[in-house]
Nucleic acid binder design. Sequence first.
DNA 1: AACAGATCCAACCGCGAAATA
DNA 2: TTATTTCGCGGTTGGATCTGT
Length: 293
Amino acid sequence: MARSPCCEKAHTNKGAWTKDEDQCLIDYIHVHGEGCWHSLPKGAGLLRSGKSCRMRWINYLRPDIKRGNFTEEEDELIIKLHSFLGNKWSIIAGRLPGRTDNEIKNYWNTHIKRKLISHGIDPQTHRPLNEIATTTTATSTTSYLDFIKNYPLSSLAIAKINLMKNNHTNNRYNYNNNNFSTTPITAPTLNYPKIDLVEDVNCTSSGITTEEEPPQQVQKQQQQQQQQQMQDMFESELNLELSIGLRPSANTAESKLQQVPNGYQLFDTVQSAMVAQSVCLCRQLGYQSNTKY
DNA sequence: AACAGATCCAACCGCGAAATA
DNA sequence: TTATTTCGCGGTTGGATCTGT
């Protein structure tokens, strides 16, 4: 009892759309709305596949599509989201109003990718190209000191790890029901040594100190203040990073992520810390400032 | 002006998941 | 339960345009 055969492929045009075809599609959607792509061509009198109509509408004809060059803010957001999500263009597009997944994908492949490569950053891993060969198998068994030794983290990334170490011992960040929460875990995580952050919240230097000086009241207070600032910043960034996918639907990668047992686990492995590092690295290269690659 | 190579981007293709008969 | 269609996604292609010589 299957459906009747589809004859969509018969007698369909291919290639560039004409103005008449565009207008025909626009008029039809204005009257009948989006959806039912399969039956749309027949109803609209178009010799196109439903798939082609959908693509044309979503990527080109939709009235809310934003035209023109990408802004620096959009650049930065795309890189950040890509470092987190990979090639999930539709999800990334969902975070950039008016931009389509196809447009972002093209922009990534023609602009951002090249810029990252020219600056020695692998566009897939968001890590320095010359370090990729030796870091492909970082696991939770890697000691944090080994990791630091090989991949000096930005202070921001370190601060994030410290905060998790200090404030959420034996916790990991989970993504459930569109929110991050901390939930006890049993799986082994990194053995974080205590590393006090005392400088450089803007990723302008390596900023790592490994031993605390003999306590002095003023220093303590300053450190507490800085730590609080870092926590605020961290939570702020986390909100951005983890608010990805607030509109999950049944068949999206977002919903799949949420379906992973124990939720969407972030920063519980060395790789996750690398993500933080890579984002910071991009910033160091100018994405946060007014300078461009 | 003419040509070649590089770049851009709209459009196509194949695949997997969901829906449906 | 199974076979098939439909939909949406990411990867790729190829024609149009740009740039350098």
